[in-house]
């Protein structure tokens, strides 16, 4: 077919205009990470899926993608867990309740929760990868009877860098949650597991035919987690992975997040592992 016949005819829209939203709460999680509660104007709901992201901007500073940390089951406001690593995030850390930020989104494909319904849900989160995974964890906890067991493996560099420690306590006490945490290097006070996240996987109690897994963490983590899950016998089709890239526009135009033929902001950030195998640059 001729190329000009392939061009879809649809009404053009403004893709790059933010919705000015209000910071409702600012809560430090660690020395580096902060949890922001954000409200869209007029009590509008963000309407996201777990695993999706928004573009957050400050005028005169910049715009960047951040995953949504709250569950869509908790309406009215949404939460962003953000680490201070650059100019924009340094400036965000100075915000107070009442201040404004620009929001675009939600964007991308999040976790396909329908594929997890009725199944045991295994979450493997490394470091700041817990931020988007918390959205799914709370989604499962809020709709407890729609899912089987909830198994959480969380790894962090040190116990000082653990996120959501208060919620972690409630996961630990919840008989319906199988919660495991490890740190690469513990402080003298740390009494829990020490070692990389893959050390948690061999000991997990898994019903292989019933378990669906979602993995999110730093790039270096994925191959090792995949190997560990494979050696447990978890089939590839039961694995979803959330990938980090530079999603500058969020709407499949700017090119920064492209992995081979796939735009992470459109096809991801959450991918079904069998689909990732054709993307050589993914891991």
């Amino acid at each position: 077919m001729k190329l000009n016949e392939l061009v879809p005819q649809q009404d053009p829209v403004d893709l790059y205009l933010p919705v000015m939203s209000e910071i409702r709460d600012v809560r430090p999680l660690t020395d580096l990470e902060t949890l922001y509660t954000v409200a869209l104007p007029d009590g509008r709901d963000l309407g996201h899926q777990p695993g999706q992201f928004v573009e957050v901007s400050l005028f005169g500073v910049g715009e960047a993608p951040f995953s949504i940390s709250s569950s869509p089951t908790r309406k009215g406001v949404f939460e962003l867990g953000i680490r201070k690593v650059g100019l924009l995030t340094e400036k965000l850390a100075e915000l107070k309740p009442g201040d404004k930020v620009g929001i675009r989104g939600p964007f991308g494909h999040g976790i396909p929760v329908e594929k997890f319904r009725g199944k045991d849900v295994l979450i493997v989160a490394g470091g700041i990868g817990l931020v988007p995974m918390r959205s799914m964890i709370n989604y499962v906890l809020d709709r407890r009877d729609e899912f089987g067991r909830l198994i959480i493996c969380y790894g962090s560099r040190s116990d000082k860098e653990l996120l959501f420690t208060d919620e972690m306590e409630s996961w630990r006490r919840d008989p319906g949650v199988d919660f495991h945490v490890t740190v690469d290097r513990g402080s003298p006070e740390w009494e829990g597991n020490t070692g990389v996240i893959t050390t948690l996987i061999p000991g997990l109690e898994l019903d292989l035919g019933k378990t669906v897994c979602c993995v999110c963490g730093p790039p270096v983590m994925y191959r090792f987690v995949l190997l560990a899950l494979k050696s447990r016998g978890l089939p590839d089709k039961s694995i979803y992975m959330s990938l980090e890239r530079r999603m500058k526009c969020g709407v499949g135009k700017c090119g920064h997040c492209q992995i081979n033929h796939s735009y992470v902001c459109q096809d991801g950030p959450v991918y079904h592992y069998p689909d990732l195998k054709s993307l050589e640059e993914a891991l």
Partner: peptide
């Protein structure tokens, strides 16, 4: 034209 029309159609272009 294809790139700026498919998926999200962009007003600017």
């Amino acid at each position: 034209d294809y790139n700026f029309s498919q998926g999200h159609a962009e007003r600017n272009y």
